[in-house]
């Protein structure tokens, strides 16, 4: 099986503030990590390869420093890694990001399965996985918690609000996985050393035959027009202090006044 695992470099913390003067997002000194959900995608890819043979290719789009997450993927057991990095990719929304990744997957060629994490913790959109499937016109399954390979198909189990379902998809396909699917391994020292030596290819738009009109800000239907801190909830807080018994009495009184209990 030829498996592509998409990984994203994200900030380790969401402690973003808005600078009151410049109105820009202040994110200085925040370290970058691999999107936690992608660790499960990577682990699942490596497990499938170990069971059925083939190769795992880690794919990412981002600035040059995003190669760090690809080296992390290599050290965990990915066979190859490719970084899409160019100014032309900058400012991509989920439409343009999934387009670029889909073009790279076409360029890699003969891919059977694409695995993504359920969502990235910085954007939380969960749109890129199904977006890739749409650009490639492949079948998709989002939120997968179990996957088996059967001939040229996969059988996936998905959890949803009302229970779960199990269904079979013809390959090639795109799946997104949730944390329940596995426990990611810790990279070995040998893996880390090999990853350091790996000559990591960096692909530009021309390498993947991408239409420049569909990349970056040009190719993104959405525009962020404003960012601001969230509105605080307006509350005239009633503050209750005293002994536990007094507090309890006062609260029960307040709640009964409002017919809440």
């Amino acid at each position: 099986m030829k498996i592509v695992v998409c990984v994203k470099q994200v900030p380790a913390s969401n402690d973003a503030k808005i600078d009151p003067v410049t109105k820009r997002i202040v994110r200085e000194g925040i370290k970058s990590i691999m999107n936690p959900f992608d660790l499960y995608a990577l682990e699942e890819g490596i497990r499938l390869k170990e069971k059925f043979g083939g190769q795992v290719i880690a794919l990412s789009m981002g600035p040059p420093k995003a190669e760090a997450v690809l080296r992390e993927a290599l050290s965990a057991g990915a066979d190859h890694a490719i970084l899409l990095s160019d100014r032309a990719f900058g400012g991509s929304d989920t439409w343009a990001t999934s387009y670029a990744l889909a073009k790279a997957i076409e360029r890699i060629g003969h891919v059977d399965l694409v695995i993504c994490g359920k969502q990235a913790i910085d954007g939380d959109t969960a749109q890129v996985g199904p977006g890739i499937a749409a650009h490639l016109d492949w079948m998709q399954a989002a939120g997968v918690m179990e996957v088996q390979v059967k001939d040229s198909s996969i059988i996936v189990k998905r959890m949803h609000e009302e229970g779960h379902d199990i269904c079979q998809l013809q390959l090639p396909a795109v799946i997104t996985v949730v944390k329940d699917i596995n426990t990611p391994r810790v990279p070995t020292l040998r893996g880390r050393l090999a990853a350091l030596k790996y000559e990591l290819p960096v692909w530009k738009p021309a390498d993947i035959g991408a239409d420049p009109e569909k990349l970056g800000l040009n190719g993104s239907p959405t525009r962020v027009v404003k960012t601001q801190p969230p509105d605080p909830r307006q509350a005239d807080t009633i503050r209750i202090e005293g002994t536990p018994k007094e507090c309890a009495r006062a609260l029960v009184h307040e709640l009964r006044l409002r017919s809440l209990i």
Partner: peptide, 23 residues
């Protein structure tokens, strides 16, 4: 933005060439 909607609608947005904002 349910499990189902979050899987379905990004596929629609890409195929219909339009922007989508989640949640």
């Amino acid at each position: 933005a349910t499990t189902k909607g979050r899987a379905l609608i990004p596929r629609v947005a890409v195929k219909a060439d339009c922007g989508l904002t989640a949640d």
